[in-house]
């Protein structure tokens, strides 16, 4: 087993090269993304933590299997998020559940900052409302809002994860924000 500390000063790209030589190094790479991807899968699915962990395990296996397909022209994080996104969407379809957002406290603060409603979202009811408002959005808006405001990805990264043009991502985010505000206001009955 590779010592995690020895991986700390290595870039993702270096770890990819090392993982191709020795699979033990892949542990460092997967560990680096484990928590972030688990949250991401949880945010875009209705899965329990256990189910999300199962999906994540498949993500890591697929990532390792396709490791030679990674090209440093793309950020590794975008590449592994794309695999996670595809795997989560595929699992959602298999389970035939409507994807929804599972928000945590930190997520809520970030959303509050973006939509200028920090003062209004300090209780679980508001959290539920944001959750519902996001769930009411079309999938194409929901996924870009999650990546932009919860996973804090930039437009190019989102374009790479979802394999859509950068200009389309900009339009989806702008439209998605507007639709989200409308949905949220409809639910709470006041303007924010």
């Amino acid at each position: 087993m590779v010592n995690m500390e020895s991986c700390d000063n290595k870039t993702d790209e270096e770890l990819v090269e090392l993982s191709l030589k020795d699979s033990d190094h892949f542990f460092c790479l997967s560990k680096r993304y484990e928590e972030k991807l688990l949250k991401y899968i949880g945010r875009i699915s209705k899965f329990s933590r256990e189910d999300a962990e199962d999906v994540l395990q498949e993500v890591f296996i697929k990532t390792y299997y396709n490791l030679n397909g990674f090209d440093p022209e793309l950020k590794f994080s975008s590449w592994i998020y794309r695999i996670a996104h595809n795997e989560a969407v595929s699992a959602i379809r298999k389970k035939a559940v409507r994807p929804t957002i599972h928000l945590e406290i930190g997520d809520l603060e970030r959303f509050g900052d973006v939509f200028d409603m920090a003062g209004d979202i300090d209780n679980s009811l508001d959290r539920k409302m944001i959750d519902i408002a996001l769930s009411h959005l079309d999938e194409k808006y929901r996924e870009v809002l999650v990546l932009r405001f919860l996973d804090e990805k930039d437009y190019v990264e989102i374009a790479d994860i979802l394999k859509k043009p950068t200009s389309t991502i900009g339009n989806l985010i702008s439209r998605g924000k507007k639709l989200f505000k409308e949905e949220y206001e409809k639910l709470i009955g006041v303007s924010v």
Binding site: S23, S30, E34, E53, I61
Partner: peptide, 9 residues
């Protein structure tokens, strides 16, 4: 999960 994935690999 990382450990489980590596073991499976």
């Amino acid at each position: 999960i990382s450990q489980l994935a590596l073991e499976r690999i």
